[in-house]
């Protein structure tokens, strides 16, 4: 048995026993690569997730909503930082990851490229978007890479608060004036499909899924997670007196789940390759923040060097 084969047997044995792989453990190149891709994309999505919501901080309609929204965005920025750190344990430098995000080479959740055009969108992003994220991330807490699994435990706790906050925004609007209810309905209609797309295409269309499941990089197939989300959300939407965003949604007695309409995966592929509606604005905002802050980072570094020399 070659050394590499013996290492692989030990690696897969560790995973099969339900134990974690840690940064100093031997791991196959493809495992490292897949995790770097997945953790970095997650980190980028958290960072870019700040923008559609930040758009509404200045306009949030009450002091309580302003504070809650700021706290949520602050959590997202912090999640981005934990995840960049988790990626660094695999050798992926944060500076390189951030530069790939700015220059448009890195992927992040397409949801963040949608335009947040009403206050209800802030609720829908949190309720549906973060809700889809939670279903995915709760499942991923059992993934085999220790630093990512541990980061996800904290992230999931905070995301649950975000989702409840989003639900509350929509619930208040749904029970409010006719204009508020219309605002809530429009947001649900527009954010439903992007949220379902967050789980990715069916595993039959994905090139990474089979090995990812075997190595517990992901823990459940995309379709299973998406169905769980639909089954959770549909009764809640109905309960708020809002219309379902897809006319084909209906309860299936045989499957004990809701059937829902086909998702246009060609459109999804286009979004991944070309970017969504506000992609240019999101990347411009990130790039501007970086270049306009260059003099601050240079000064901090210079001051740090002076203090180090003096000590």
């Amino acid at each position: 048995m070659s050394v590499d084969h013996a290492e692989l047997v030990h690696f897969e044995g560790t995973i099969n026993q339900g134990l974690s792989i840690e940064p100093d453990d031997w791991m196959p190149g493809r495992y490292r690569q897949s995790l770097v891709r997945m953790i970095s994309q997650h980190a980028h999505s958290e960072i870019m997730g700040m923008y559609p919501e930040a758009n509404w901080i200045s306009q949030a309609p009450s002091l309580r909503r302003k504070i809650a929204l700021l706290a949520k965005i602050q959590d997202e920025a912090a999640h981005g930082l934990y995840l960049y750190s988790a990626a660094e344990t695999l050798g992926a430098q944060r500076s390189k990851n951030e530069s790939e995000l700015r220059n448009g080479r890195a992927k992040y959740s397409n949801l963040m490229d949608n335009a947040a055009t009403s206050w209800a969108d802030v609720g829908a992003i949190a309720w549906l978007g973060d809700g889809a994220g939670i279903v995915n991330q709760v499942s991923l807490q059992d993934n085999s890479y220790g630093p990512y699994a541990r980061a996800l435990q904290r992230i999931c706790q905070e995301e649950s608060f975000h989702q409840r906050q989003g639900y509350e925004i929509i619930a208040v609007l749904a029970k409010g004036s006719a204009a508020q209810k219309e605002m809530a309905q429009s947001a649900i209609d527009r954010w439903w499909i992007p949220s379902l797309m967050m789980f990715g295409p069916p595993d039959s269309l994905s090139s990474h899924s089979e090995q990812s499941l075997r190595w517990r990089i992901k823990c459940e197939p995309n379709e299973v997670l998406r169905q769980r989300f639909v089954d959770d959300l549909v009764p809640q939407i109905v309960d708020l007196g809002l219309n379902l965003p897809d006319e084909t949604i209906k309860w299936n007695d045989t499957r004990q789940s809701y059937d829902y309409g086909e998702i246009d995966w060609q459109h999804f592929k286009d979004l991944v390759s070309k970017g969504g509606f506000q992609r240019a604005e999101r990347l411009e905002a990130r790039t501007n923040a970086w270049y306009e802050g260059a003099w601050v980072r240079e000064a901090a570094l210079a001051r740090n060097n002076q203090l180090r020399k003096a000590s």
Binding site: Y51, A54, I57, L70, I73, L81, A285, A289, V296, R297
Partner: peptide, 14 residues
């Protein structure tokens, strides 16, 4: 709050 997403580093955003 206008600084959100515009600060020189993510740590400063926070």
């Amino acid at each position: 709050s206008e600084w959100c997403g515009k600060a020189p580093t993510t740590e400063l955003d926070i």
